[in-house]
C-alpha cells in the first residue's frame, strides 16, 4: 500500500491523479487558462452579437419600414444561444475532454427536450387543420371554444392562496384598467400620469392603444420627428380601425402571423394617430374577434 501522502512525480498506479497533473493521463485534462479566457471572450462577443442583431432588426423595422419576418428574429437569437451553450458545455463543462458517456447523457436529455417541443408544436400548429377527406366525419367536441375564446372571470377558487377577484366577466387586464380609470377624475389626468411615468422610466413614450382620444398628442408627448414634410417614414403593422367595417368575418387563427408585426409601438402609434380621432380602435383588437 502506498501512502497517499507520498507524492512521487512519476506515475503511480495506486494514486493515478498524483501530483503529476494529468498531462497524458486520460480523463483529467487541465484546460489551459488561456483557452478558457478565449472562450469567455467568445461568449461575451456572441452576447453582444445577439443584442446587436435584435437591435438592428428593430431599427430596420422602425426606420426603414421594412418588415422582417418574425422567424428571422427567433431563429437568429436561438442559433447564437445554441452556439454559446455548445461552447459552455464543451470547454467550461469540459465535455470535450470528458468520457463520452457524460455527453451521451446530455444528448439523450436534449432528445427528450426535442420531443417535448416537437409534439407541442405539432399539436398547436395543426389545430385548425381539417383535411378535406376527413371533413365530413368532423364532430364538434370539447368546449367548442377556440384558442381565442372568451376570457373567463378572474376568480380562482381552486387555489386558496390566490386572491379572489370577481372581475365581472372582464379580462383581468381590462378590469384593472377600469379600476384605474375610476380612481381618476378625468381620463386626461390618468393618461398624463401614464405618459409622465413612461417618460421617466423608458426612453420614448409610446401611445397606448386604449388612449382613444389621443391624449398622447394632446399632452404633447407626440414628438413629430418621425415623419416630416421633407421625409415621410412608412409605417408597418396593423392600423387600428382598419378592420372596423369588415369585422370578425375571418378565422381567428389567421391573425397570429400578421398580428405580431405590429410590435414596434413607436412606428405604430404614428400610423394610428391619423386614423383614430373619431374612431374607436379598441373595438377591433385582433385578439378579440373570436367572440
Amino acid at each position: 500500500m502506498n501512502d497517499t501522502n507520498a507524492h512521487a512525480p512519476a506515475f503511480d498506479p495506486m494514486d493515478p491523479h498524483g501530483s503529476t497533473h494529468a498531462g497524458g493521463h486520460h480523463g483529467h485534462v487541465i484546460v489551459h487558462w488561456r483557452t478558457q479566457l478565449i472562450i469567455l471572450f467568445a461568449l461575451l462577443a456572441l452576447t453582444a452579437l445577439t443584442v446587436f442583431v435584435a437591435q438592428a432588426e428593430s431599427l430596420i423595422i422602425a426606420e426603414m419600414g421594412i418588415t422582417i419576418p418574425h422567424w428571422v428574429n427567433i431563429l437568429g437569437a436561438m442559433i447564437i444561444a445554441v452556439v454559446k451553450a455548445t461552447l459552455v458545455c464543451m470547454f467550461f463543462m469540459q465535455l470535450k475532454y470528458d468520457k463520452p458517456l457524460n455527453a451521451l447523457v446530455l444528448f439523450f436529455c436534449l432528445f427528450c427536450v426535442f420531443l417535448f417541443l416537437f409534439f407541442a408544436t405539432l399539436d398547436l400548429t395543426s389545430r385548425g387543420l381539417i383535411r378535406p377527406e376527413r371533413a365530413q366525419y368532423l364532430v364538434a367536441g370539447g368546449t367548442g371554444e377556440g384558442l381565442n375564446g372568451t376570457v373567463q372571470d378572474g376568480t380562482v377558487s381552486s387555489n386558496p392562496g390566490s386572491p379572489r377577484i370577481a372581475t365581472g366577466g372582464l379580462a383581468i387586464t381590462e378590469f384593472r384598467f377600469e379600476q384605474k380609470r375610476a380612481s381618476y377624475d378625468s381620463d386626461r389626468a390618468m393618461w398624463s400620469d401614464y405618459y409622465h411615468h413612461q417618460e421617466e422610466t423608458g426612453a420614448h413614450p409610446h401611445r397606448h392603444e386604449k388612449d382613444t382620444t389621443n391624449y398622447f398628442a394632446l399632452l404633447g408627448y407626440d414628438h413629430p420627428e418621425r415623419s416630416t414634410e421633407e421625409r415621410s417614414r412608412p409605417s408597418h403593422g396593423l392600423t387600428p380601425g382598419l378592420f372596423a367595417e369588415h369585422a370578425p368575418a375571418h378565422h381567428a387563427a389567421d391573425h397570429h402571423d400578421d398580428a405580431h408585426a405590429d410590435t414596434d409601438h413607436a412606428a405604430d402609434d404614428h400610423a394610428a394617430e391619423t386614423h383614430t380621432d373619431d374612431e374607436h380602435p379598441a373595438d377591433d383588437h385582433p385578439e378579440d374577434d373570436g367572440h
Binding site: V151, G154, S162, I165, T173, R176, F177, H208, E209, K210
Partner: peptide, 20 residues
C-alpha cells in the same frame, strides 16, 4: 407596478389581455 402573474396582476395599462 402590479406586473405580477395570474390573479395577482394589477397593472392597469396592459396592451393584451393575456399579459398576466
Amino acid at each position: 407596478d402590479g406586473k405580477a402573474p395570474g390573479t395577482f396582476y394589477s397593472y392597469p395599462f396592459a396592451h393584451d389581455p393575456h399579459e398576466p
